[in-house]
Amino acid sequence: MSTAQLPPQPNDSDRGASRGDGLPAHASPTYYEQPLLKKPHWEWSVITYLFLGGIMGGSGMLVMIADERPERDADLARSARYVAFALAAACPLVLISHLGRPERFLNMLRIVKFKSVMSMGVWGLIAYSGPSTLAAAAQLSRDGVLPKWIAALEPRPLMKLLQGLIGAFMAGYTGVLISATAIPLWGKGKRYIPAFSVCSGFAGACALNAAIVALTGSDRTRHKLERLELIASTAELVLLESFRRHAGSTGDPMFAGERGRRLRTYTQIGGIIGPALLGRLPFGGRAKTLLASALTLAGGYILRETLIESGKDSADDPRAASRQPE
């Protein structure tokens, strides 16, 4: 018999559990190749939340920076306010659906905990819903749907500022939330993930609002949004690429194999380069914008999905889990 058939020996450089099943010894000691960490039980609901939260936050930022003079970005301000409000209403529902039992969402409100990114996120969401609701209401009254006096109540500059700041937080905290876990892949991306989450969220917001503006607003605003989106998604592309370099083999679950291919196809090419090229086309008009937006949004979703799913795989790799990134 070949000694390769024997379990690893105590004197071997690689100590550890033998499988005793006639398999050759493993490169570094693991416990029967079993996972060392537990993976998160996060499915579509959480992925969707990360996705929508980003757009919600991005829209808030757009509200803040929009120039409300009618001849300029009034149309953007309007759509961004409505989008922000709609998502601020939708996100809690998605979270609740994840908890299984709605009433349990209230447990989150027992405490404010700065150490817990999730607690911060929940309070951020609540904080965000205030201004965005008021702002949306005011917008409605300006648009003549609600009585005029409501608009008068809104301290607009302050609301814009709040929506912008909290929005930025909402777009970024989800990235912090996952990188502040024991999952090697996520830990490795502690700077990159929050950064490209913000970019992706902002890009998504630009895309969605561009689409709305395309249908309801001026070409001028639409083009400006396309330029903004280009800037954000280019940053996202650069960040993703440098994360891949930085992560090395720890990044494999995300960048290698089938999942890496998905990420490249749908997010990097389909969701970023594609729209950029579309933008360059001399023809197409609104339809082109609508298509580009759709691609960007899809890319954004795939990014979040890839992030979560590859995190689970990363948790299953005992070697990566043994020496956790600082």
């Binding site: 930025a168 970024g172 905290y173 912090v176 990188s179 502040a180 700077r191 929050p194 913000v198 940053a235």
Partner: peptide, 9 residues
Amino acid sequence: GYTAAALTA
């Protein structure tokens, strides 16, 4: 993480 997010935003 927060710093990176803030700067990017």
